[in-house]
Computed example of a mutant assay.
Amino acid sequence: MDEPWWEGRVASDVHCTLREKELKLPTFRAHSPLLKSRRFFVDILTLLSSHCQLCPAARHLAIYLLDHFTDRYNITTSKQLYTVAISCLLLASKFEDREDHVPKLEQINSTRILSSQNFSLTKKELLSTELLLLEAFSWNLCLPTPAHFLDYYLLASVSQKDHHCHTWPTTCPRKTKECLKEYAHYFLEVTLQDHIFYKFQPSVVAAACVGASRICLQLSPYWTRDLQRISNYSLEHLSTCIEILLVAYDNVLKDAVTVKSQALAMVPGTPPAPTQVLFQPPAYPALSQATTTLAQLQAPVQDLCLAYRDSLQAHRSGSLLPGGTGSSLHTPYPTLQPLDMCPMPVPASLSMQMTIAAEPRHCLATTYGSSYFSGSHLFPAGCFDR
């Protein structure tokens, strides 16, 4: 195809097919004992995918594969967990991206995150793990994620009829759309950071990213008829997911302001920076009113994205890319067992590493509870009895 599918003549048909496929996705149960280390490996895959310039769809599919595999099957060693995570990224990049963007074995082993664990991965280990993953997912990697829907919804994200703060029309829809696209992709990355977003269908999450972006930019109405037509969702369908995104947005901004205030406090003679709280959870129960003015959002959205990325990378400070290569280990893996049959805690070495590397974060899943997740997977268990 010479053009992205969402800009082609078959865009509507592709969207309908993706919506049908998302209805068949397995339920995420959040039963894995490895959930405490999930955020760490999401950051690893995010940084590695950015280093290899993978598309968002590949990154989101990789994390989807990792989450649903660990949700069903127990992983007994830290090296297994690293191998499964990297294999998920390899499979996703092969399925969603260009061949020259697929991470090479040398790139993977040159990362300091592996050498710090005193091991490197071999081609045989990665290939065997890829086969296990393919069998677990019945060789079906056509699994829609929010990244597959976002660009299609962005086509109708801004129109000539939009107004700022219910008063004046947008003076330059093109620039407004560019800024909204930055916000939407920022929110798309936010959805990777907490497994609570598996409560919603991927198309709902993607549409909510657009809706939250319009609220942040004070565009009126918050959800247009064009967006409702292209997505088949009303604002009522999206309100819960949008509110969770705005809570995360508010938390990141408060963290960024705190870091900036601490930095300024170290400079003699600098007055403390005022703290701006843009959103509070009780302030938008029905998304009927916004709590900010346009003047509060004049800073470029790139600064917000950079602050967010810095907060993700603060505890590593470039420790992932690039670095030396650890010694190669060829010890065969123990047999993987279904999680329900053989529950195991996180290995002590990995738990210690997570304790040292972790940074304070706002846990949305704790706020909103874990009652969303129920049901079971349809993954076969026999393919792991080796």
Results as ranks from 00 to 15, higher is better:
residue 185 H to L: 14
residue 127 L to R: 13
residue 193 Q to H: 14
residue 174 R to A: 12
residue 213 S to L: 07
residue 199 K to A: 15
residue 175 K to W: 02
residue 191 T to Y: 02
residue 146 P to D: 01
residue 155 L to Y: 05
residue 131 L to V: 14
residue 208 A to M: 07
residue 212 A to Y: 09
residue 207 A to Q: 03
residue 169 P to V: 04
residue 193 Q to T: 15
residue 213 S to F: 09
residue 225 R to Q: 15
residue 194 D to H: 14
residue 156 A to I: 00
residue 162 D to M: 05
residue 200 F to T: 06
residue 198 Y to H: 14
residue 208 A to T: 04
residue 218 Q to D: 11
residue 191 T to K: 08
residue 129 T to N: 01
residue 139 W to G: 00
residue 121 L to I: 11
residue 128 S to H: 11
residue 188 L to V: 02
residue 136 A to R: 05
residue 209 C to K: 07
residue 207 A to V: 11
residue 201 Q to D: 01
residue 130 E to A: 02
residue 156 A to F: 11
residue 141 L to M: 07
residue 138 S to F: 12
residue 150 L to Y: 08
residue 213 S to I: 05
residue 197 F to W: 09
residue 225 R to G: 10
residue 212 A to F: 09
residue 189 E to G: 12
residue 157 S to M: 01
residue 145 T to G: 07
residue 146 P to G: 03
residue 157 S to E: 05
residue 148 H to N: 15
residue 143 L to Q: 05
residue 184 A to F: 08
residue 218 Q to K: 10
residue 127 L to G: 00
residue 138 S to C: 12
residue 132 L to T: 08
residue 200 F to Y: 15
residue 195 H to T: 03
residue 144 P to N: 07
residue 185 H to I: 02
residue 172 C to N: 15
residue 220 S to K: 04
residue 187 F to P: 08
residue 224 T to Y: 11
residue 143 L to H: 07
residue 173 P to K: 08
residue 153 Y to A: 00
residue 176 T to M: 11
residue 222 Y to A: 13
residue 179 C to E: 15
residue 160 Q to R: 14
residue 223 W to K: 03
residue 166 H to G: 06
residue 191 T to F: 04
residue 219 L to W: 06
residue 129 T to I: 05
residue 168 W to T: 15
residue 226 D to V: 04
residue 193 Q to A: 13
residue 221 P to E: 13
residue 145 T to W: 01
residue 138 S to E: 12
residue 147 A to M: 01
residue 191 T to H: 14
residue 209 C to L: 06
residue 126 L to R: 03
residue 204 V to W: 03
residue 142 C to Q: 13
residue 205 V to S: 10
residue 144 P to S: 08
residue 179 C to H: 08
residue 139 W to K: 04
residue 184 A to C: 11
